[in-house]
C-alpha cells in the first residue's frame, strides 16, 4: 500500500491502494466516475480517455501511481464547464452521437486539442482524434462538431 494524492475534478483525493492498478479501474470502481469506459483495454480505442494536467491520456494504460500530484478531469467534471456546453451543442447540432460509447473520449480528445490549438485545421482535428475509435458515425460529423465548437466558442480556449 502506498499513498497517492491527486486532484480529481478540482477536489483533492488521497488513496491508499495498490498503485499498479489501472487508473481506469480506480476511477470507475473507487471514485464512481463511469464516464470513462473500457473499450479495448490496450490504448487503441480512446474510450477511457481522461484529462491529465489538461492533456488527454488513456486511463486504461495508466498505473494509478502515474497521477500522483497531478490534476485529473473526467468527463463528469468537464461537463460542468462552459467549454463542455459549447462542445455539447456542437455535437448535438452536427448529429455526432449515435450509440455514444466513444463520445466521452471524443470530447476529452477535443478539449485536449482546443486547449493547445484554439483554431485547429481539419487535419489537426483528425490527428487529434487518431487514438479514438467510433464504429457508428464515420467520424465526419465529429470533425464538423469540433470545427463548429472552435468557431462558436471563440475566446473560451
Amino acid at each position: 500500500m502506498t499513498t497517492v494524492k491527486f486532484t480529481l475534478n478540482g477536489k483533492k483525493v488521497t488513496l491508499e491502494t495498490d498503485i499498479s492498478r489501472r487508473f481506469l479501474d480506480v476511477l470507475r470502481n473507487d471514485l464512481n466516475q463511469t464516464g470513462p469506459k473500457e473499450g479495448c483495454g490496450e490504448g487503441e480505442c480512446g474510450a477511457c480517455a481522461v484529462l491529465l494536467d489538461g492533456h488527454s491520456v488513456n486511463s486504461c494504460l495508466l498505473p494509478l501511481a502515474y497521477v500522483h500530484n497531478k490534476e485529473v478531469m473526467t468527463i463528469e467534471g468537464y461537463a460542468e464547464t462552459e467549454r463542455y456546453k459549447v462542445l455539447e451543442e456542437a455535437f448535438i447540432h452536427e448529429g455526432s452521437v449515435q450509440c455514444g460509447i466513444c463520445i466521452p473520449g471524443m470530447m476529452i480528445a477535443a478539449e485536449s486539442l482546443l486547449n493547445q490549438n484554439p483554431n485547429p485545421s481539419e487535419t489537426s482535428i483528425r490527428h487529434s482524434l487518431s487514438g479514438n475509435l467510433c464504429r457508428c458515425t464515420g467520424y465526419n460529423m465529429i470533425v464538423k462538431a469540433i470545427q463548429r465548437a472552435a468557431q462558436r466558442g471563440k475566446g473560451l480556449w
Binding site: G43, L61, L62
Partner: peptide, 18 residues
Amino acid sequence: AGGTDLMVQHRTWSELPP
C-alpha cells in the same frame, strides 16, 4: 516509465491489477 507497453503486456482481467 510511461508503462504504455508494460501495462498491456502484464494485464490480466478487467478490474484486476496487472
